[in-house]
Design a protein around this nucleic acid. Sequence first.
DNA 1: TTAAACTCTCAGATTACGTCA
DNA 2: TTTGACGTAATCTGAGAGTTT
Length: 352
Amino acid sequence: MELALSLGDTPKPFTFLDKAQKMVNRDLGFCMGLGKGAADRGGDHQSRNSRESDGERRGSSDPPVQLDLLPFSPVPRSQTSSSQLSFSWLTQHLTVAAEPGSSNGFTRAVDVNRRSLGVDKGGEEGTTALSSPNSAASSFQMDFSIYRSGSRSNKRSENEAENDIRGGMASSRASDEDENGMARKKLRLTKEQSAFLEESFKEHNTLNPKQKLALAKQLNLRPRQVEVWFQNRRARTKLKQTEVDCEYLKRCCETLTEENRRLQKELQELRALKSSQPFYMQLPATTLTMCPSCERVASTSTSTAATANTNVTSPPAATADIANTTLSLAKPRLTQMVPFPPLQVQGPQAAL
DNA sequence: TTAAACTCTCAGATTACGTCA
DNA sequence: TTTGACGTAATCTGAGAGTTT
């Protein structure tokens, strides 16, 4: 898996649905039509436009680091534009049945999920039409038990069959077990579905209801599945970003520790040097640099005082605690000293 | 106009399942 | 064949914001 970091959070138009046609056409040999209204992003005003703007507001409040996980390498667009077929999912999906046993993953997905579409078409969102226990979904329970008894070698098709069946089940927040008396069964998305979702996530990491519906229709998933996928995807992105940040901070800490060690050593050397220089007090104030935070002398730059007084023997009374004297004398002169610049810690995004 | 109820979406934590070494 | 690690779909919970009553 390729890990890429992109800087900045520039709002982009929601173009993945357009690109998807090309992508699917290239990868899968046919073109998927877009469900109605998918193009007019923002056309879903009334109650939801505020939600969308809310999503944009959230996005803008995020740090300007965007982590993109790219599970596949996109093919140049120039290779994707040939022989696009006009294909409407909503009206013709039954006529484009996949060939049985086809190795084409997405075609297969279309095939096995067709039934859920058939169930789905009763309602605008599917969710509402299917949440009732009296919906067509419950009639699939018998078939489901048949699928469950399949052999291990048919695991994949069995899984897809269950996906198909459950695709028509309730997508409310209540668990499937509550609604249908079945334990939840994890269903894996096909590679093509994942890639498609990934592509759309790269465009926008949040969905408005219309986009969610369009994606769900296009991928033959429940809107709830699309929603959950995006939620999990955001969580994974954040986790990865946290790991990157953590790694960066670790490196910062190591660097600062090393720097601190070096400065301590330098300070010790300076103190040792000054202990042999009784007239260090003649040292010009401007040659001392005081750390404002720890109020300790961090370095000196001049050697004039030291070299000028090397021939003077110091009386024993003058050899008091030189370091303390240095500090006490240096303190009042802080206004004349060059302050330490504020510590500039670049964020991970800058490092990356 | 205000407040309560409702709805929706989100993040975060967690569970549970499928896959693979 | 079994097992543990891992990835991830799905669920649960609480919070925030918008809408309705």
